[in-house]
Protein backbone atom coordinates (compact mmCIF):
# COMPACT_ATOMS: atom_id res chain seq x y z
CA UNK A 1 0.00 0.00 0.00
CA UNK A 2 2.94 2.32 -0.32
CA UNK A 3 4.91 3.13 -3.41
CA UNK A 4 8.11 4.84 -4.40
CA UNK A 5 7.84 8.23 -6.11
CA UNK A 6 10.59 9.26 -8.51
CA UNK A 7 10.80 12.68 -10.12
CA UNK A 8 13.23 13.19 -12.98
CA UNK A 9 13.71 16.64 -14.46
CA UNK A 10 10.27 17.83 -13.41
CA UNK A 11 9.61 21.36 -14.65
CA UNK A 12 6.24 23.07 -14.19
CA UNK A 13 4.78 26.16 -15.81
CA UNK A 14 1.87 28.50 -15.16
CA UNK A 15 1.33 29.75 -18.70
CA UNK A 16 4.71 31.11 -19.71
CA UNK A 17 5.95 31.44 -16.12
CA UNK A 18 8.31 28.65 -15.09
CA UNK A 19 7.50 27.86 -11.47
CA UNK A 20 9.91 24.99 -10.81
CA UNK A 21 12.91 23.91 -12.80
CA UNK A 22 14.42 20.46 -13.19
CA UNK A 23 13.47 18.81 -9.91
CA UNK A 24 15.04 15.40 -9.30
CA UNK A 25 13.85 13.63 -6.19
CA UNK A 26 13.26 10.04 -5.06
CA UNK A 27 10.80 9.41 -2.26
CA UNK A 28 11.03 6.13 -0.38
CA UNK A 29 7.90 4.13 0.34
CA UNK A 30 6.56 4.10 3.92
CA UNK A 31 8.37 7.25 4.90
CA UNK A 32 7.58 10.88 5.55
CA UNK A 33 9.32 13.35 3.29
CA UNK A 34 9.12 17.06 4.09
CA UNK A 35 9.41 19.79 1.48
CA UNK A 36 10.59 23.05 3.02
CA UNK A 37 11.61 26.43 1.68
CA UNK A 38 10.54 30.08 1.56
CA UNK A 39 7.18 31.19 0.12
CA UNK A 40 7.04 31.04 -3.66
CA UNK A 41 9.88 28.54 -3.95
CA UNK A 42 7.67 26.06 -5.76
CA UNK A 43 7.36 23.34 -3.14
CA UNK A 44 3.56 23.34 -3.31
CA UNK A 45 3.72 23.42 -7.10
CA UNK A 46 6.00 20.39 -7.06
CA UNK A 47 3.65 18.62 -4.66
CA UNK A 48 0.72 19.27 -6.98
CA UNK A 49 2.57 17.84 -9.96
CA UNK A 50 2.79 14.49 -8.13
CA UNK A 51 -0.97 13.85 -8.30
CA UNK A 52 -1.47 15.87 -11.48
CA UNK A 53 -3.47 18.57 -9.68
CA UNK A 54 -1.15 21.20 -11.10
CA UNK A 55 -2.67 20.90 -14.55
CA UNK A 56 -6.17 21.70 -13.22
CA UNK A 57 -5.32 25.40 -13.47
CA UNK A 58 -5.79 26.89 -16.94
CA UNK A 59 -2.49 27.18 -18.80
CA UNK A 60 -0.56 25.05 -16.32
CA UNK A 61 1.65 22.26 -17.67
CA UNK A 62 4.40 19.91 -16.59
CA UNK A 63 7.53 18.60 -18.29
CA UNK A 64 9.84 15.81 -17.18
CA UNK A 65 9.12 12.38 -15.82
CA UNK A 66 7.25 11.35 -12.67
CA UNK A 67 6.92 7.69 -11.82
CA UNK A 68 5.17 5.84 -9.04
CA UNK A 69 6.75 2.37 -8.73
CA UNK A 70 8.15 2.77 -12.26
CA UNK A 71 4.74 3.64 -13.69
CA UNK A 72 4.90 6.93 -15.62
CA UNK A 73 1.90 8.91 -14.34
CA UNK A 74 2.20 11.45 -17.16
CA UNK A 75 2.12 8.83 -19.92
CA UNK A 76 -0.30 9.83 -22.68
CA UNK A 77 -2.84 7.06 -22.20
CA UNK A 78 -2.93 7.22 -18.38
CA UNK A 79 -6.32 8.07 -16.85
CA UNK A 80 -5.72 11.12 -14.68
CA UNK A 81 -8.56 10.20 -12.31
CA UNK A 82 -6.83 6.87 -11.61
CA UNK A 83 -3.62 8.75 -10.76
CA UNK A 84 -5.47 10.94 -8.28
CA UNK A 85 -7.14 7.94 -6.70
CA UNK A 86 -3.74 6.34 -6.21
CA UNK A 87 -2.18 9.54 -4.84
CA UNK A 88 -4.41 11.26 -2.29
CA UNK A 89 -4.11 14.87 -1.21
CA UNK A 90 -4.81 16.85 1.95
CA UNK A 91 -5.05 20.62 1.51
CA UNK A 92 -3.93 23.65 3.43
CA UNK A 93 -7.37 24.63 4.59
CA UNK A 94 -9.67 21.84 5.74
CA UNK A 95 -12.16 21.41 2.89
CA UNK A 96 -14.86 18.90 3.79
CA UNK A 97 -17.78 19.03 1.35
CA UNK A 98 -19.99 21.61 3.07
CA UNK A 99 -23.31 20.05 2.13
CA UNK A 100 -22.37 16.52 3.16
CA UNK A 101 -22.57 14.72 6.49
CA UNK A 102 -19.44 13.39 8.19
CA UNK A 103 -20.20 9.91 6.92
CA UNK A 104 -20.86 11.06 3.34
CA UNK A 105 -17.62 13.03 3.39
CA UNK A 106 -15.54 10.03 4.37
CA UNK A 107 -17.07 7.74 1.76
CA UNK A 108 -17.25 10.39 -1.01
CA UNK A 109 -14.20 8.92 -2.76
CA UNK A 110 -15.54 5.38 -2.54
CA UNK A 111 -18.88 6.48 -3.95
CA UNK A 112 -17.03 8.12 -6.84
CA UNK A 113 -15.41 4.73 -7.44
CA UNK A 114 -18.83 3.18 -7.70
CA UNK A 115 -19.05 1.51 -4.28
CA UNK A 116 -22.74 1.44 -3.30
CA UNK A 117 -23.11 -1.36 -0.73
CA UNK A 118 -24.03 0.23 2.59
CA UNK A 119 -22.17 -2.38 4.63
CA UNK A 120 -18.95 -1.89 2.65
CA UNK A 121 -19.20 1.89 2.99
CA UNK A 122 -19.84 1.69 6.74
CA UNK A 123 -16.90 -0.59 7.29
CA UNK A 124 -14.59 1.60 5.21
CA UNK A 125 -15.79 4.78 6.94
CA UNK A 126 -15.11 3.35 10.39
CA UNK A 127 -11.69 2.08 9.35
CA UNK A 128 -10.68 5.42 7.84
CA UNK A 129 -11.98 7.42 10.80
CA UNK A 130 -10.17 5.15 13.25
CA UNK A 131 -6.95 5.56 11.24
CA UNK A 132 -7.42 9.31 11.27
CA UNK A 133 -7.85 9.31 15.08
CA UNK A 134 -11.30 10.81 14.70
CA UNK A 135 -13.63 7.86 15.25
CA UNK A 136 -14.18 8.32 19.00
CA UNK A 137 -15.04 11.98 18.55
CA UNK A 138 -17.59 11.56 15.75
CA UNK A 139 -18.98 8.01 15.98
CA UNK A 140 -22.22 9.24 17.56
CA UNK A 141 -22.85 11.97 15.02
CA UNK A 142 -21.88 10.56 11.64
CA UNK A 143 -25.04 12.02 10.12
CA UNK A 144 -24.21 15.59 11.18
CA UNK A 145 -22.64 18.05 8.72
CA UNK A 146 -18.86 17.82 8.36
CA UNK A 147 -18.65 21.61 8.37
CA UNK A 148 -19.85 21.64 11.98
CA UNK A 149 -16.60 20.13 13.32
CA UNK A 150 -13.68 22.15 14.68
CA UNK A 151 -10.84 23.05 12.31
CA UNK A 152 -8.58 20.28 13.56
CA UNK A 153 -11.37 17.73 13.39
CA UNK A 154 -12.24 18.89 9.88
CA UNK A 155 -8.65 18.38 8.78
CA UNK A 156 -8.63 14.87 10.26
CA UNK A 157 -11.94 14.28 8.48
CA UNK A 158 -10.23 15.28 5.23
CA UNK A 159 -7.39 12.88 6.00
CA UNK A 160 -9.93 10.14 6.66
CA UNK A 161 -11.62 10.96 3.35
CA UNK A 162 -8.26 10.76 1.59
CA UNK A 163 -7.19 7.43 3.09
CA UNK A 164 -10.65 5.85 2.78
CA UNK A 165 -9.90 5.10 -0.88
CA UNK A 166 -6.61 3.43 0.22
CA UNK A 167 -4.17 5.46 -1.87
CA UNK A 168 -0.49 4.51 -2.31
CA UNK A 169 0.83 7.96 -1.59
CA UNK A 170 -0.59 10.78 0.54
CA UNK A 171 0.35 14.38 -0.27
CA UNK A 172 -0.17 17.05 2.39
CA UNK A 173 0.04 20.73 1.50
CA UNK A 174 0.74 22.61 4.75
CA UNK A 175 -1.95 20.56 6.49
CA UNK A 176 -1.48 22.28 9.87
CA UNK A 177 -1.08 25.91 8.84
CA UNK A 178 -4.71 26.72 9.65
CA UNK A 179 -4.74 24.76 12.91
CA UNK A 180 -3.98 25.48 16.56
CA UNK A 181 -0.99 23.77 18.25
CA UNK A 182 -3.04 21.00 19.86
CA UNK A 183 -4.71 20.05 16.57
CA UNK A 184 -1.29 20.28 14.91
CA UNK A 185 0.07 17.78 17.40
CA UNK A 186 -2.86 15.46 16.70
CA UNK A 187 -2.10 15.59 12.96
CA UNK A 188 1.62 15.00 13.55
CA UNK A 189 0.88 11.95 15.69
CA UNK A 190 -1.36 10.76 12.92
CA UNK A 191 1.45 11.10 10.38
CA UNK A 192 3.68 8.81 12.45
CA UNK A 193 0.94 6.22 12.44
CA UNK A 194 0.12 6.59 8.75
CA UNK A 195 3.67 6.14 7.51
CA UNK A 196 3.45 2.46 8.41
CA UNK A 197 1.05 2.11 5.50
CA UNK A 198 1.55 5.07 3.22
CA UNK A 199 4.20 7.11 1.50
CA UNK A 200 3.70 10.62 2.82
CA UNK A 201 5.00 13.84 1.31
CA UNK A 202 4.30 17.00 3.27
CA UNK A 203 4.87 20.66 2.48
CA UNK A 204 5.44 22.71 5.61
CA UNK A 205 6.59 26.17 6.65
CA UNK A 206 7.20 24.97 10.14
CA UNK A 207 10.80 23.86 10.52
CA UNK A 208 10.20 22.15 13.87
CA UNK A 209 7.40 20.22 12.28
CA UNK A 210 9.65 19.06 9.45
CA UNK A 211 12.28 18.02 12.00
CA UNK A 212 9.73 16.18 14.14
CA UNK A 213 7.77 14.23 11.58
CA UNK A 214 9.94 13.59 8.55
CA UNK A 215 12.54 10.99 7.68
CA UNK A 216 13.92 12.95 4.78
CA UNK A 217 13.78 16.65 3.97
CA UNK A 218 14.04 18.50 0.68
CA UNK A 219 14.94 22.18 0.66
CA UNK A 220 13.64 24.31 -2.21
CA UNK A 221 14.47 27.94 -2.90
CA UNK A 222 14.36 30.68 -5.51
CA UNK A 223 17.37 32.82 -6.29
CA UNK A 224 15.42 35.96 -7.17
CA UNK A 225 11.74 36.85 -7.50
CA UNK A 226 10.54 35.66 -10.91
CA UNK A 227 13.11 32.87 -11.10
CA UNK A 228 11.85 29.31 -11.02
CA UNK A 229 12.08 27.38 -7.77
CA UNK A 230 14.76 24.71 -7.58
CA UNK A 231 15.77 21.89 -5.28
CA UNK A 232 18.87 22.86 -3.31
CA UNK A 233 19.43 19.86 -1.11
CA UNK A 234 17.72 16.61 -0.29
CA UNK A 235 18.92 14.32 2.49
CA UNK A 236 17.89 12.61 5.70
CA UNK A 237 16.18 15.01 8.04
CA UNK A 238 18.82 14.39 10.68
CA UNK A 239 21.61 15.40 8.33
CA UNK A 240 19.71 18.37 6.93
CA UNK A 241 19.08 19.82 10.38
CA UNK A 242 22.49 19.06 11.90
CA UNK A 243 25.08 19.38 9.14
CA UNK A 244 23.64 20.35 5.77
CA UNK A 245 26.08 20.29 2.85
CA UNK A 246 24.83 23.51 1.29
CA UNK A 247 25.37 26.96 2.75
CA UNK A 248 21.88 28.05 1.59
CA UNK A 249 20.22 25.21 3.48
CA UNK A 250 22.09 26.04 6.63
CA UNK A 251 21.18 29.72 6.36
CA UNK A 252 17.51 28.90 5.91
CA UNK A 253 17.33 26.35 8.68
CA UNK A 254 19.13 28.53 11.17
CA UNK A 255 16.95 31.51 10.22
CA UNK A 256 19.65 33.51 8.49
CA UNK A 257 17.89 33.37 5.16
CA UNK A 258 17.83 36.60 3.26
Amino acid sequence: MAKRVEATGVTAYYGSFKAIDDINLNVEPKSVTALIGPSGCGKSTFLRTINRMHEVLPGARVEGRLTVDDEDIYAKDVDVTAVRRMIGMVFQRPNPFPTMSIFDNVVAGLRLNGVRRKSVLQEAAEKALVSANLWDEVKDRLGKPGAGLSGGQQQRLCIARTIAVEPQVVLMDEPCSALDPISTLAIEDLMFKLKDSYTIIIVTHNMQQAARVSDRTAFFTIDRTGDPGRLVEYDTTQKMFSSPSEKKTEDYITGRFG
Binding site: N51, R84, A108, L112
Partner: peptide, 12 residues
Protein backbone atom coordinates in the same frame (compact mmCIF):
# COMPACT_ATOMS: atom_id res chain seq x y z
CA UNK B 1 -10.95 24.08 -2.37
CA UNK B 2 -14.33 22.32 -2.66
CA UNK B 3 -13.70 21.56 -6.31
CA UNK B 4 -10.10 20.44 -5.68
CA UNK B 5 -11.32 18.16 -2.88
CA UNK B 6 -13.46 16.30 -5.39
CA UNK B 7 -10.80 16.26 -8.11
CA UNK B 8 -8.11 14.99 -5.73
CA UNK B 9 -10.35 12.03 -4.88
CA UNK B 10 -10.26 11.03 -8.53
CA UNK B 11 -13.49 12.65 -9.68
CA UNK B 12 -14.01 13.34 -13.36
Amino acid sequence: PDQEAALSLGAT
